[in-house]
Design a protein around this nucleic acid. Structure first.
Lengths: 340, 340
DNA sequence: ATTAGCACTCTATGATGGAGAGTGCTAACC
DNA sequence: GGTTAGCACTCTCCATCATAGAGTGCTAAT
């Protein structure tokens, strides 16, 4: 439906626009790309592209700007083609992530920072959540004032600690027995499963005969009900350097969006399990807050199981090629580290 | 050195300016505050105040704006007087903090959020650091691939976990013995002390004869050398709503400052131990990045010992009275919760 | 010492008028 | 028939200019 020449012109306009913001004129296209055509011809083609919805004019007698649809066409095309990967990026990625094999939390924090510093957009990573992490072991440690510290180890290397307040004052010996019981019962199951089972048990046996099991269930209930799935965001000052954020309102818009971390989590949850990097361009985003931004994200896995996600948020005028490469690579590296 | 009337005029100008940005004229002062004086007289007084350095004119024939010195005078005065505390603030503070007695990390996170939502500036809290927290107990738990999970409990209710990579593969039994040893040696001492002692030991006995102690020292070295002292920042979108941040450069400036958390930590470390809320107005700040902002901060304590700090960052055009109240109250509440 | 009056200064605002960039159309060209 | 040169037209951007408005500083009167 789009002949080769029109495609080329569309891509040229997009590339021009991504490099330097501001409407792209026909003359510029002929100068930067040697189509062997005059500006007039390019104008005709661009006019056609506008009619088809790939380009738009901010006002009559201005150059053209890509629409979300235009970007989408572009992204779909480059998805099919071989992907451009800058060697320096890859090396830096590998180097930084290597340093952090031992601590997944610091790891994800650093990964977010890196995503943003490489892409110059906002970098985001979310840690594995309850439905994807499996319990390796739990430890209960008596603390003062009837409080108990609970440390959860997952098979993926995540450690989470919580302090809970007990009604009854348990001895460390009791706690040890409860620990054994919980580990025996739930080790190897996802946190989400544990939560569900516990909820069911609590309802079923309103008055639990065995006091120990009853306490165990209560502890699990308190600990596994919250699923905080950490999120790391970095690079705000990075995007502010972009000309796209020269007016204050857009900054506010972005800040509001990413300050409410739930929005981002919901966004990334949607792509959980999808194969390869996912791109959401402007209006394609289901969330209103994101309709003027683009999101490039990918899930990382341990083996086959999707664990969490990494992504980049930026203006729709984004270097998608680079963004996709960076996100894809990062996700793959994290998967590799997790699976090793 | 400043007669009562001049003082009143200065305060009037400051209050006008804080309420509505933009230079304050003599007419406005006479209208809003009934001094029983004509604009001309006020003008003379304001002229004097300018000469003394408390006010300044953006340009000839504009109204006056307070200088940092002016704010300083104002703040010092209200410090002496009885402090204005809004009852609603106090109640909300108490209510929110009450909910969080059990988990100090979530507590501080929430406190930062609250500081910002009450003050409409950026809220900041930092958790106790190595020099102020004392080790209650350490737990070592064997993990996969020769890694060991270290959980540190402090007397203040902080829990910190780290994973470290061991050269030699130790059994859980070995780890238990190391645990006992460390707890016996270091329980009750500040993390900073532990770090120092360990460093000394490691140098002194280059070849440690006792393998267990040697391992213990190595673990301690790895764990206590880093002092991450968490920092919680909240309310960026809050300050963007202020007219002070209508131009993009100021936003960038602020963002750069608070994105580099080390800056903030250094800033708050300086006030550690000071009695009551501390105010740093614009150029008074020792750090260049902060010279166009103001910081109001206070330390919170456990008993007598200073533990961490809470604060507010905003434009120099700040409602100092309110900011001081909020910060002071928050610090006091946290101290109370910690000490109970 | 205070105040009314007035000239002066500076900013903010809105109108005006090119300059520049780019389009769309038409007619000529290969 | 696709391509191109030429040209009129449109729209933005920018600088210039004039004016209104706010506020001061000074002087002379109270």
């Amino acid at each position: 439906m789009l002949d080769e020449r029109s495609r080329q012109v569309l891509f040229a306009v997009i590339q021009c626009y991504v490099n330097t913001p501001g409407p792209v004129g026909s003359r510029v296209v002929t100068k930067k790309y040697s189509f062997g055509l005059s500006p007039a011809t390019i104008r005709n083609i661009m006019s056609d592209l506008e009619e088809m919805g790939y380009l738009t004019q901010p006002h009559t007698s201005a150059g053209r700007v890509p629409t979300d649809t235009g970007y989408r066409y572009y992204v779909d095309s480059i998805n099919a083609e071989e992907r451009y990967v800058n060697g320096v990026f890859a090396a830096e990625l590998a180097r930084k992530l290597e340093l952090l094999r031992k601590d997944i939390n610091a790891f994800l924090d650093e990964a977010a920072r890196m995503l943003s510093s490489l892409s110059h957009y906002v970098g985001i990573t979310i840690s594995p959540n309850s439905s994807t992490t499996t319990l390796s072991r739990i430890e209960l440690i008596k603390y003062r004032d009837g409080r108990v510290a609970v440390v959860i180890f997952t098979d993926e290397g995540l450690i989470r600690n919580t302090v809970i307040q007990m009604d009854t004052d348990l001895s460390q010996r009791d706690l040890n027995r409860i620990t054994s019981y919980i580990n025996y019962q739930f080790s190897g199951r996802t946190l989400e499963e544990v939560r569900k089972v516990v909820a069911k048990e609590l309802v079923k046996e309103k008055v639990l005969c065995d006091n120990l099991i009853s306490e165990a269930m209560r502890i699990c209930d308190a600990v596994f009900s919250s699923a905080p799935g950490n999120i790391y965001i970095s690079g705000l000052s990075e995007v502010l350097a972009l000309p796209d954020f020269c007016n204050v309102d857009r900054i506010k818009e972005l800040l509001k969006t990413i300050e409410d971390k739930h929005i981002i989590v919901r966004l990334l949850d949607k792509i959980a399990g999808a194969e390869g990097p996912q791109v959401f361009i402007g209006s394609e985003n289901s969330l209103d807050e994101m309709k003027s931004f683009s999101l490039v994200a990918a899930t990382y896995r341990e083996g086959k199981r999707p664990m969490g996600a990494v992504g980049i948020i930026g203006p729709t005028r984004m270097d998608y090629l680079q963004a996709i490469s960076i996100v894809d690579l990062t996700a793959k590296y994290i998967s590799e580290v997790l699976s090793s």
